[in-house]
Write a protein that binds this DNA or RNA. Structure first.
Lengths: 202, 202
DNA sequence: GTCTATAACTCGATAGAC
DNA sequence: GTCTATCGAGTTATAGAC
């Protein structure tokens, strides 16, 4: 067994990620991050000039770590039904491994919509156009029922992401523990796919 | 035209609601609330002992102001399809009038899951059992396709709420202004209803 | 009840020794 | 690079006059 050597900077980013994601920018304390990293506050300022800079790094990192994975599927060259299946499976899989990222991103996004669009989005804007066109074509060809492509897109994303955003609420309402909820999400990959395809199939 | 007289306490709660919902517990400043209410900070402490107490009041109020409206539909005595339609229409209508409440609630909920369940939920726990049973019965009777009732419930709630939670993101991705997005949600009432019923109909 | 003034405290940031 | 000690701005909360 190799014990991975972790540099101070890595310790900080790992700790900051944990604290920022659970408490948000305003709720997080530099002291919390220092404690979590097992160092002292001064070091945080040595490596990252201030809280704002540190936060921005973590936010960008969290976002870009899973956004491209999703975005590329939207752009892939495959039949519509396959793309829907691929989207649902991949999205939920990514979320199972990063369950707290969505609420973190959405939250900060609501506070700073402009910053987000400018800085984060520009590097990899959403490739929704491709999917929307594809839906329109299949509707015209009569392959699927008539449906507003934008509404279908909203449906797909909503059903994948929201159960993670509202996890504590659903968990309490359904009386489920961690494992049970995780299994529900695991099954959900195929359930949603079927749900969507059943709805738009003729 | 009657000009409604607003007591100081009402001014405070109105201002606090606005500030807390937009900035969250940690982001909100007592000074902001005082300014918004057109009074001074000391008054906030006179009427509500401290920030924590004031926040709790607003949170509970925001939550209970629209939760029962939804909850009662789940419990209503009507056929499944009618109930689905009623749910989607009512939920989106309520959200159009309180668009920032969901992200506010979900956010604070993630920080304090225990507080929420104990204090808020106990007064009116979710009546999901009724709907779930109803779905199970209709499946057994062969009225609708076989589907996991819990997944269907998740689908319904997700499709209604998430577009409000992720509004800035979708708006940017789709290049829509406020009015266009609002109209999209208005249409969505009937679109979702149809989407769900199409999916589960035999 | 409402205000001004200020105490008490939190927290990000810096200085400076090692 | 890393630490301790501390400053100073910003905030919650209170004291006390009116």
């Amino acid at each position: 067994m190799m014990v991975k050597q972790e540099s101070t900077e890595e310790k900080i980013t790992a700790a900051a990620k944990k604290v920022f994601i659970t408490k948000g920018m305003m709720g997080a304390r530099m002291q919390d991050i220092a404690d979590e990293a097992g160092i002292n506050k001064a070091m945080l300022h040595y490596y990252f000039r201030n809280k704002e800079k540190l936060f921005e790094k973590i936010f960008t990192e969290a976002f870009t770590s899973f956004w491209p994975q999703i975005n590329n599927i939207l752009d892939a060259d495959m039949p519509l039904f396959s793309k829907i299946e691929s989207f649902c499976h991949s999205y939920i899989e990514v979320l199972l491994n990063n369950p707290y990222v969505p609420i973190f991103v959405l939250n900060e996004l609501n506070r700073q919509p402009a910053m987000f669009i400018q800085k984060v989005w520009k590097s990899g804007p959403p490739k929704v156009g491709s999917l929307i066109q594809q839906i329109e074509i299949d509707v015209k060809k009569g392959k699927i029922k008539a449906i507003n492509p934008v509404q279908l897109l909203l449906n797909m994303v909503s059903m994948c992401v929201f159960p993670f955003v509202a996890k504590p609420m659903f968990q309490a309402a359904l009386g489920m523990n961690e494992l049970q909820y995780r299994q529900l999400m695991e099954i959900r990959k195929v359930e949603i796919t079927r749900f969507i395809i059943d709805s738009i199939s003729k």
